[in-house]
């Protein structure tokens, strides 16, 4: 059996968690994987928190949703941290936005990466890049998709007229990857 990545991206609306999931999904397809993306929709989305479930797999996607057994969790704020940390499978990865989440994961069966994405984005001079920096860290560690595929996906998700933003996004992916490398276990 091939590998199946079950990825949850969660955070406040505006942190780009939905598009982070879409970029992974599109990039997975570009890499020839089977993929799906499911948003949490409804009142919780209005309430300011958002999350999506992504599958990137070597085999066809059966159920596109998963309550537990997450292999990669991206938590961009504290409510998401509390909600998703317990749902990550043993051996899975948790990526925490340590710029705004001060708590530490109290589990020793998972790999946790604290990435201060807000601070890193400020270093790059564009606060909007937090999701792309995080994505750089995620794919550096969990090897879900190719970095170049994310950039190809970027044009698919946001449109070809955003091509001018490719260099800064490439830089953001690299920044995330660079920080993640120093944390690699």
């Amino acid at each position: 059996m091939g590998k199946t990545h079950k990825i949850s991206c969660a955070g406040f609306g505006g942190q780009g968690v939905m598009s982070m999931g879409q970029l992974l999904t599109y990039a997975g397809m570009i890499d020839g994987k089977e993929v799906s993306w499911v948003p949490a929709y409804g009142p919780e989305m209005r309430g300011g928190t958002a999350n999506c479930s992504v599958i990137v797999s070597d085999t066809p996607v059966g159920s596109p949703i998963f309550e537990t057994g997450i292999t990669t969790a991206v938590v961009m704020n504290l409510p998401s941290f509390h909600k998703f940390v317990p749902k990550v499978a043993s051996g899975g990865s948790i990526f925490v936005n340590s710029s705004i989440v001060n708590e530490k994961v109290d589990r020793d069966d998972v790999n946790v990466y604290y990435i201060p994405v807000n601070d890193l984005a400020n270093e790059l001079g564009n606060a909007k890049l937090i999701n792309i920096i995080m994505l750089g860290a995620v794919i550096e560690i969990d090897k879900i998709v190719e970095s170049e595929s994310i950039l190809k996906a970027f044009l698919k998700v946001f449109g070809d007229n955003k091509a001018k933003l490719i260099p800064i996004n490439r830089e953001a992916l690299a920044k995330g990857a660079e920080v993640a490398k120093t944390l690699k276990k």
Binding site: Q22, T25, M29, V35, S36, W37, V38, P39, Y41, V61, P64, I65
Partner: peptide, 8 residues
């Protein structure tokens, strides 16, 4: 779910 999800 079918309405909201994205797939190739």
């Amino acid at each position: 779910l079918i309405g909201q999800m994205m797939e190739p």
